[in-house]
């Protein structure tokens, strides 16, 4: 992602994913692991689905009710993670979290997700920008065997 991304383009990316989320749908079959996430201070109430095969994140998608920030951040995450090795996915997650908390991070792997670089300006919304990401991380780490819905 070029550093020259203008604020106007960043807004556009967020709104595109909010208005037309690409990965907001039910999983294709029963082979997905899922995790329910909800926020104490926002209305976000989502389900994240991840299909891992041979240590590769084959597919991710999500459903639920969410604000603009959580909708766009979760949707962008899905696009970014699909097809990645679990190890790569973890690295991307770590860079994203570092960016959200204003620590030095590797922007070369974040692609569109850099649009959330200013989230810390609105500290109350950090949870919104990370809720879907945390779900993916938990599923990768713990191999949640939640009943596919």
């Amino acid at each position: 992602m070029p550093i020259s991304l203008s604020p106007q383009m960043m807004r556009q990316i967020i709104m595109d994913h909010y208005d037309n989320p690409l990965f907001k749908h039910e999983p294709k079959d029963d082979s997905y692991q899922s995790l329910h996430q909800h926020s104490d201070n926002c209305i976000d109430d989502i389900m994240v689905y991840v299909k891992v095969e041979n240590d590769i994140v084959v597919d991710t998608c999500w459903t639920g009710v969410a604000c603009t920030i959580s909708t766009a951040s979760t949707d962008i995450m899905c696009g970014l993670m699909n097809g990645k090795k679990a190890q790569e996915a973890r690295y991307i997650y770590d860079q994203y979290i570092k960016m959200i908390h204003e620590e030095p991070y590797d922007d070369s792997v974040l692609d569109e997700a850099v649009v959330f670089m200013n989230t810390s300006k609105q500290a109350a919304r950090i949870r919104c920008a990370t809720i879907g990401w945390d779900a993916l991380k938990d599923i990768l780490d713990e191999g949640h065997n939640h009943e596919p819905r």
């Binding site: 201070n41 926002c42 209305i43 920030i69 609105q122």
Partner: peptide, 17 residues
């Protein structure tokens, strides 16, 4: 929630949700 965050950015405290 997005409106409430916007109002926060202008110094206005309201509750959303």
């Amino acid at each position: 929630q997005d409106e409430a965050t916007f109002l926060n950015s202008k110094g206005i405290a309201v509750r959303s949700g």
